[in-house]
Design a protein around this nucleic acid. Structure first.
Lengths: 168, 168
DNA sequence: TTATATTATGTTATATTGTTGCAAAATCAA
DNA sequence: TTGATTTTGCAACAATATAACATAATATAA
């Protein structure tokens, strides 16, 4: 029997998790949020979100574009970027500045600034939301008189599996 | 009388600081580090470092290229990127992923992972090196079994001056 | 329901950032 | 000085992202 969905909320998704559940959960959350805020989750946007969620790795916009063209015919760069902007605006997708790539948000709807762990070996991504990190940053920044807007916290290194050699 | 050099090591550089001292200090540190490590601080690399240090704001590679062409004739993109790579390799310059831009390191030579405060209003940049932040990140990451390599911590918001209206 | 306004998408072109590959020049070491 | 190594010049190109404008789809109001 498979494990329950959205295990990535705290750390890395186990390799045996049922990823379909992750996708379903992400799409349902997206629908709920759009309904709530009077936004339209069009077929295209839904498609892009689904592609972003095809695994727990960041995806580049042009990789997304390739896949989109395979699935649903014609599309060009602005198509993807517009969908990503829309999804980011609703907090459904994050942009990873250090990779120029995108990933599904594991806590859609909740206002938050995630911290991201990026495996340099297998590209696995974990989104953390550790108040201690956010607090340390806020404290340090505000000690200098700086008022914090948006935080980019992206840590590269080795995920547990790659570290221990389960995947090398 | 002007204030002493390198005031930016902790927070934002005061607007009345003697910036020539910052540049001098950066160049001297660069020379020392290159000598120590048997690397060559060529005229070109020195020039690029000086341009990066022309103020306490991040600079894009192509802006740097423009200035370089004005100062020293012919140059192309790879010229700038190679010099930046060299300087980054020695820890003299940081790349800011969230801006695709570069800035002089205020603590050259010391191994460290800086945290950056970026003013969205005046583009002022402060480099922090707060062990509490680094520690919180390391703790949070290692709790998931992740082994930390490089950290990208870039916070955008309002610097003290812009916040208080000294600069609007 | 139709007319109108708004929003979303298609399309083409272009801007911005960064890299590759190879040749020429400068520097270093013997 | 010779030969090896490193640095720079140069040309082309790759990857990421945006602008501008036309068309299509959807929502809203009469």
């Amino acid at each position: 029997m498979k494990k329950p969905a959205a295990p990535a909320a705290l750390g890395f998704a186990p390799s045996d998790h049922d990823h379909d559940d992750c996708v379903r959960a992400a799409l349902q959350a997206a629908e709920a949020i759009c309904r709530e805020r009077g936004q339209r989750l069009t077929a295209l946007r839904r498609q892009v979100l689904e592609l972003v969620w095809s695994n727990h790795r960041p995806v580049g916009a042009y990789a997304l574009l390739d896949r989109l063209q395979q699935v649903s015919g014609r599309a060009a760069a602005p198509t993807v970027y517009r969908a990503l902007d829309f999804l980011q605006g609703l907090g459904l997708v994050h942009r990873l500045a250090s990779l120029n790539a995108y990933a599904g948000c594991v806590r859609p709807g909740e206002a938050h600034t995630g911290q991201f762990l990026i495996c340099t070996s297998c590209q696995a991504l974990a989104e953390l939301n550790d108040p201690a990190v956010a607090g340390a940053i806020a404290g340090s920044a505000e000690a200098t008189g700086f008022s914090v807007g948006h935080s980019t916290v992206e840590i590269s290194g080795l995920c547990p599996d790659c570290r221990s050699g389960v995947r090398s």
